[in-house]
Simulated scan of single mutants.
Amino acid sequence: MPEGRRATMRGNKKKDTRPELAVRRLLHAMGFRFRLHRRDLPGTPDVVFPTRRKAIQVHGCFWHQHEGCRSATLPATRQEYWLPKLARNRERDRQAEAALTALGWQVMTVWECEVTDVGRLGPRLRHFLGFPKARG
């Protein structure tokens, strides 16, 4: 693997990613308070509202293969490695969401590509959290 690509791959984080931070900033600006990365819940959701029993997962379009998204391309090299890895990520996402739902939680997935359009994401988050109209 070329050194430049190796450095790029090392820079990928599990938590506190740029899209996740953007969602958290937006939620906070809307007046919501939340918990982060509850390890006692299946899938360790990114943003958790315990009293509402709602969780938000912020997924990268490439890593979680967002269907129909131009960022969810498959790598041209080493497909014997990447195809199973990306398929495992998607299966793990499905299992975590099913387990959360079985525990009585509602789950919302926010995709990395959706974070750039705050005008659409804000109302969607507000509706998911039970506030169809703007607060304040």
Rank of each mutant, 00 (worst) to 15 (best):
L100T: 00
T44K: 09
R10I: 11
E91H: 06
A76N: 12
F32Y: 15
R35S: 09
P84V: 14
A102S: 11
H66S: 05
T17G: 02
G136E: 13
S71P: 07
A72I: 01
R18G: 08
Q65G: 00
V115T: 15
I56D: 00
L26R: 11
R78T: 15
R6P: 08
G11D: 14
A22L: 13
L83T: 11
L125G: 01
A87N: 06
T109R: 14
E80S: 15
F62C: 00
C61V: 01
A76Y: 13
P19T: 02
R53A: 07
G104N: 10
A7R: 14
P50W: 13
M9T: 09
T44A: 04
H37K: 05
E3G: 08
R6V: 14
H64G: 00
Q65T: 03
K13I: 10
F62G: 00
A102W: 03
D93T: 05
R94L: 01
K54H: 10
L74K: 13
G68I: 01
Q57D: 14
L36Y: 03
D93I: 00
G104Y: 11
D117F: 10
L27Y: 12
R120T: 10
N12D: 14
Q57R: 14
R94N: 04
T109V: 15
F128W: 11
K13M: 08
L27A: 10
R92M: 04
F34G: 06
A7T: 12
A98L: 10
P84Q: 11
E114M: 06
Q79T: 15
V110P: 00
H28A: 05
V115R: 04
A96P: 01
R135W: 09
P132Y: 09
L41I: 09
E91Q: 07
V48F: 06
R5S: 11
L121R: 14
G122A: 15
P50R: 07
Q106I: 02
L121G: 01
R5Q: 10
R94V: 05
R124L: 09
C61P: 00
T51I: 15
G130L: 04
G43T: 01
T51S: 13
G68S: 03
H37W: 03
G130C: 03
N89T: 02
R126N: 13
P84I: 12
M108S: 04
R70T: 13
K54G: 11
R52Y: 02
M30E: 11
C113E: 02
L36Q: 13
P123F: 08
G43M: 05
A7P: 05
K14D: 08
L86S: 02
G4F: 12
K133I: 15
G104F: 08
H66N: 05
D117T: 10
R24S: 13
L74Y: 15
A134V: 14
L125N: 03
L21H: 08
L100Y: 04
Q57P: 06
A87F: 06
L100W: 02
H37V: 02
W63L: 09
I56Y: 01
P19K: 03
P84Y: 01
T116P: 07
P84R: 10
T73L: 07
T116Y: 10
H37E: 13
R124D: 04
L103K: 07
R124F: 09
M1D: 07
P123N: 08
P45T: 10
T116E: 14
G68A: 01
